[in-house]
Structure formats: structure tokens, C-alpha cells
């Protein structure tokens, strides 16, 4: 038999005074399932289990969670990659308030994203066609725009754990740089002015947990370095 032991973080504020770990046995029939498939199987045993999911192919960013100690997306993490000694431990993303089971309150994460004004700013009258951008200019956005806002990076970042209200966090900063790097954006000066305080960017200590966990293979630390360079170059 190919039973997998799954240890799940459980908390329902209506019935539980404190969170606890619950054990489940899941029959994988020897298949190398994705962690999300395992959650479906657990949910058939216990209908009350709560977790988020949507696209099940790693592009919507719903099912970020902590699997055997490492943040990632359940839908694109095969058991073979994460299970140790026949055991899988699933916890919610660390550092954010838990609503129920594996569902966390992403409010602070989204707030930091909104704070960097994540939209193109250009007050010039738009041309009748598109704004031109050379392939080289466009290449600068690669590795930035692909972020899916799953929060795996920010919730793996100690600086974000300590200051989720002040430090923008790797995900937000990656997007901050996505607009700073866009040849069509004209708000560079204003964007930089918003970031030069001691917390927003500079609380990054280069721990690089963000890079280690990003399920899309993006590199927020490099983007943060680029923002620092721009701040330095912009300073008088």
C-alpha cells in the first residue's frame, strides 16, 4: 500500500480555541501526485478542510502554503519533490494571520502591493496606436511581470515577518521595480521618493529566502538591489 502520512495544520475559530496538527492517511496508489491532489483527497475524508485553489497549474497563485517547512504552490509541487520519510506536513503561509486551516488573511500583503502604485503612470497623451517599446526595453520586464502574487516570498522573509506594515516585502518590491524598469513609465522620481525611507526597501537584509522559494523562479533580491542602485543614482 502506498499510504502517505499527512500532517495538517487545523484551526477553525468557531470551534477551536487554538490551532493543532491533525494526522491523515492518504492512499496515493503509488502515483506521484501534486500536493494539491493530496489536499483534495483529504477533503474527501474531511469536508471541513479549508484551503484556497483555482487554476491548479501554477499561474493564479491561490494555493501558496508551507510544505514540509518550505513555502510553495501546492498545485505544482509533486510529492517526490517534498515528501521526506513518507510524511508530508502542511501549514499555512507563515507570518500572516490564519483565518481557517490553510487559509491566511492576505490583507497586509495586498496592502503593501497597493502601496507601490502597481500601475503604469504616464501623463503624456496616448498615441493613436500603442506606445512603442524596443524588444531590448521590453526584455527588462522579464523576470518581473510574471509575479502571481502568491505571497510565498514575502511570507518566507524575516524582515516582512517583523515589519509587515512597513517593509514592502519582496513581492511588492519586485513589482515596484517592474514599473521603475518600464520605459513607458514616467513616475520614476515619485516612485523612488516613496521608497527611500528606512523601512520600505532598506529593511531587506539580503537573506534571499524569497529567491529560494519563488515558484516562478523570479529573483526579488536582484530587483531590490536594482532599486537601491536607482535610489543611489538619483540621490544628490
Amino acid at each position: 500500500m502506498s499510504k502517505l502520512q499527512v500532517s495538517l495544520y487545523r484551526y477553525n475559530p468557531e470551534t477551536d480555541s487554538a490551532p493543532y496538527m491533525e494526522e491523515f492517511q492518504v492512499d496515493t496508489q503509488g502515483r506521484d501526485l501534486m500536493v494539491l491532489d493530496v489536499l483534495h483527497l483529504v477533503k474527501e475524508q474531511d469536508n471541513g478542510l479549508a484551503y484556497r485553489r483555482s487554476c491548479r497549474e501554477g499561474v493564479c497563485g491561490s494555493d501558496g502554503m508551507n510544505m514540509n517547512g518550505k513555502n510553495g504552490l501546492a498545485c505544482i509541487t509533486p510529492l517526490s519533490e517534498v515528501v521526506k520519510k513518507g510524511k508530508l506536513t502542511l501549514r499555512p503561509l507563515p507570518g500572516l494571520p490564519v483565518i481557517r486551516d490553510l487559509v491566511v488573511d492576505m490583507g497586509l500583503f495586498y496592502k503593501q502591493y497597493e502601496r507601490i502604485q502597481p500601475y503604469l503612470q504616464n501623463d503624456q497623451p496616448a498615441p493613436a496606436i500603442e506606445r512603442l517599446q524596443s524588444p531590448e526595453e521590453r526584455d527588462k520586464l522579464d523576470g518581473l511581470y510574471e509575479c502571481i502574487l502568491c505571497a510565498c516570498c514575502s511570507t518566507a522573509c524575516p524582515s516582512f515577518w517583523w515589519n509587515p506594515d512597513k517593509f514592502v516585502g519582496p513581492a511588492g518590491l519586485l513589482q515596484a521595480y517592474r514599473f521603475l524598469a518600464d520605459s513607458r513609465d514616467e513616475a520614476t522620481r515619485e516612485r523612488l521618493a516613496e521608497l527611500e525611507d528606512p523601512f520600505s526597501v532598506f529593511r531587506c537584509r539580503g537573506i534571499m529566502n524569497c529567491v529560494a522559494v519563488c515558484p516562478k523562479g523570479l529573483n526579488p533580491t536582484r530587483a531590490i538591489g536594482k532599486i537601491r542602485e536607482m535610489l543611489l543614482a538619483n540621490a544628490t
Binding site: 500601475y119 503604469l120 496616448a126 493613436a128 500603442e130 512603442l132 524596443s134 526595453e137 521590453r138 513607458r184
Partner: peptide, 17 residues
């Protein structure tokens, strides 16, 4: 074109379109 003006990062041809 509106989407592009809003910032959608379309891939580009050499002429920038």
C-alpha cells in the same frame, strides 16, 4: 491599444510595435 497604454507588457517586434 488601451490595454497597452494601461501598461500591459506585450512582447515586441524590432520596430517597437
Amino acid at each position: 491599444f488601451e490595454l497597452e497604454h494601461m501598461g500591459l507588457p506585450f512582447s515586441r517586434f524590432d520596430n517597437g510595435r
